[in-house]
Design a protein around this nucleic acid. Structure first.
Lengths: 233, 233
DNA sequence: GCAAAAGTGTTTGGAATACACCCATGA
DNA sequence: TCATGGGTGTATTCCAAACACTTTTGC
């Protein structure tokens, strides 16, 4: 005998639920976005964010990670909720709402290869092609949210390589906030937070003198929070 | 001949989509929340946020406003998106995700009556009963979001009456931020923003001397934004 | 030695905080 | 006249911004 589950809500409407990810990366001094070619009708072949339908037995986080893994080969991605898009006509294919989120990825050679192998491409944020459905709006909203969040949360480090120099970090924040900053003041500010660990190595790609490499120290970040102060750039 | 619309996504899963509102009010110096008794099985009669299922031809904003109007009689409510809750087992009734948002309401005598007539109740935020499903989590998240948002956006005024005194306003912000503030500094701060319009009336309910009434001036707020400054409390 | 990026030091104005104190009024 | 909440003034501390200056190194 099969246990039958009652559907208490049968008189209401059901619809498709998708989850779409705005995937940010930072490379060559610029913010990049990961997009790929839509693989389903309608508008198959259009540029699209990375997304998937929610299945009955998964929540939106599971669905996002499933498709991120499948299309980019990436695991353990930093994911934050953005907003849910529900316009009645947003999707020609059928009534479908989309739970959007953004991801921050550390681009390095290894990841680049993986991503290309799976059919996705990194585009410069300010040089994006038109995206399908309402995905361009999602990108705009995600960038706003990234700006807002980066100011008070140490999420920039999710976009930087494990080891980075302070000028590199400044480049990133200038790309996010879309404004230039004073190098001396930036350095003082981030060092004053005491969440950076100075290494004994230098990176000489950008200057003859070379700049010291640092690592983000999450234990010190916890100490900062416990002491009542907050991260702020 | 009826035009048949193709469902391109027929191989995927459909599910119910609900929209739930965390409705904040401010009265008697305290934050209040509007809740009502769930009218559908399962768990009919449990305390619940105000919500409804999305219909095929409406977006989440329309659905929220429809049910807010229906249950509270209120129109033109200030509504902001919160987050979407998608746990597989969050709802015993069936697979159902919920798009949560919060609303800020100016409680006055007129509204109170309306609300009661429609079967909803204002509860003190810190004295809430257990709520159905994951609604208590939603309330917790909404309060966090309210705190965050109130600091940089002039949304406090949505909770105050049209005319209010500066001490009243301070009470509100103390309730939102859960900390007491210095009266002199608070006054200086809000007046320095130049978004308050002083009236010639006084409110004497709280002191013999009486406190001047003010109105929020949205034109001046626009000027503040245009001048490059931001609202901040 | 000089160009160019990395890194340090100094000054300054404005904002947040603490807090002392005056004002107005009904009981 | 005094208690109470409304409202003003001031001193101090802290921090962001501006910017001049020094260091290091390959060419």
């Amino acid at each position: 005998m099969i246990k039958q589950k009652i559907d208490y809500y049968a008189s209401h409407d059901k619809m498709y639920v998708a989850s779409d990810c705005i995937v940010f990366g930072f490379d060559e001094g610029e913010l990049k976005l990961l997009i790929f070619k839509r693989r389903v009708e309608p508008d198959k072949g259009d540029w699209s964010l990375i997304g998937s339908f929610l299945e009955l037995d998964e929540d939106d986080d599971t669905a996002s990670r499933r498709v991120l893994k499948q299309i980019t080969g990436l695991d353990n991605v930093f994911l934050e909720p953005l907003k849910t898009y529900t316009n009645v006509n947003r999707d020609k294919g059928s009534r479908c709402i989309s739970i959007a989120k953004y991801a921050l990825i550390r681009i390095d050679a290894y990841d680049k290869e993986l991503v290309e192998k799976h059919g996705a491409f990194w585009y410069r944020l300010h040089d994006l092609p038109d995206l399908t459905l309402d995905h361009s709006v999602m990108v705009k909203d995600a960038l706003e949210e990234l700006k807002r969040k980066a100011k008070y949360q140490p999420i920039g480090f999710k976009l930087l390589p494990e080891k980075f120099t302070i000028p590199q970090m400044q480049n990133l924040y200038e790309a996010i906030f879309q404004r230039s900053m004073d190098a001396g003041n930036f350095r003082k500010k981030v060092l004053s937070l005491k969440v950076l660990e100075k290494l004994d190595e230098k990176d000489k790609t950008n200057s003859k003198r070379g700049a010291f490499l640092y690592k983000f120290n999450s234990k010190n970040y916890q100490k900062l929070l416990n002491s009542g102060y907050n991260f702020e750039i």
